[in-house]
Computed example of a mutant assay.
Amino acid sequence: MTCIIIEDEIPAQKILKNFIAKIPSLELIDTFNAAIEANSFLNSNAVDVVFLDINLPDMSGLDFIKTIKNPPAIIMTTAYSEYAVNSFELDTIVDYLVKPFSFDRFLKAVNKAKERMEVADVIQEDNEEVIFLNVDKTLHKIVLNKILFIESERNYITVVTENQRLSYIDALKNWNAKLPEKTFIQVHKSFIINSLFVSKISGNFIFIKDNKIPIGRTFKQELLAKLGI
């Protein structure tokens, strides 16, 4: 995987360069001290992973992300742990590394970026795992990795994608065996979510697209652990 560093602190650059050099699958292409410098590079060069500081001299890392067309996998680096929970945007941000971070924690973030790329490749190559749901005497094709979330209410299950909302009689526990463990997480007694579509976590709620989903108290610790927070 090719990568770049956007970081204005020289000691932090050195740590990232040292960690990257230890991972054979990572190739560092360039290092930038400011977001503006990196912007033109990203517009004309393909990069798999960006290690991006939040506090930069010209603009914040979070604002910079909004300027990138088709952003690559982004691993944020920050000295402020509150960003990791309040602004967790997995649409573009794969992980947050809170300074100072260990090599083990760095490697975990890199593996998450690799996993996300592998999942994206599977979808792009149309090697999609699908199921058919019998709803109202009609078989509906569902691509598992395109499910946003699944909701349970009384004896009914509602499967939600960007284009479909299908409800039928079933139990949520039956879905845990059907779904890929790498991307689907149960966050509440009534909800299973697809972590690929999480936009942010705020307090005891997780947001997917325009949907606000509660996080159960007994599920929150496991959720944060699986997201690497």
Rank of each mutant, 00 (worst) to 15 (best):
L107C: 00
K108M: 07
K108L: 08
A109F: 07
V110I: 05
K112A: 07
K112T: 04
K112M: 05
K112L: 00
A113K: 03
A113S: 12
K114N: 11
E115A: 02
E115V: 00
R116S: 01
R116F: 05
R116G: 05
R116A: 03
M117L: 13
E118K: 00
E118V: 01
E118D: 01
E118T: 03
V119I: 15
A120E: 14
A120R: 14
D121I: 06
V122R: 09
V122N: 08
V122G: 04
I123Q: 13
I123G: 06
I123E: 14
Q124I: 06
Q124T: 09
Q124W: 00
D126F: 10
E128C: 12
E129V: 07
F132Q: 11
F132K: 07
L133R: 04
L133I: 01
L133M: 03
N134E: 15
V135N: 03
K137P: 12
T138H: 12
L139Q: 12
L139T: 09
H140N: 15
H140K: 13
H140L: 08
I142Q: 14
I142W: 02
V143P: 04
L144N: 04
L144D: 04
L144Y: 04
L148H: 05
I150H: 13
R154C: 03
I157V: 09
T158L: 05
T158N: 02
V159N: 02
V159D: 06
V160H: 15
T161H: 00
E162Q: 13
N163F: 10
Q164P: 02
L166S: 04
S167C: 07
Y168W: 10
Y168D: 06
Y168E: 06
I169F: 01
I169S: 07
D170N: 11
D170Q: 01
A171K: 14
A171R: 15
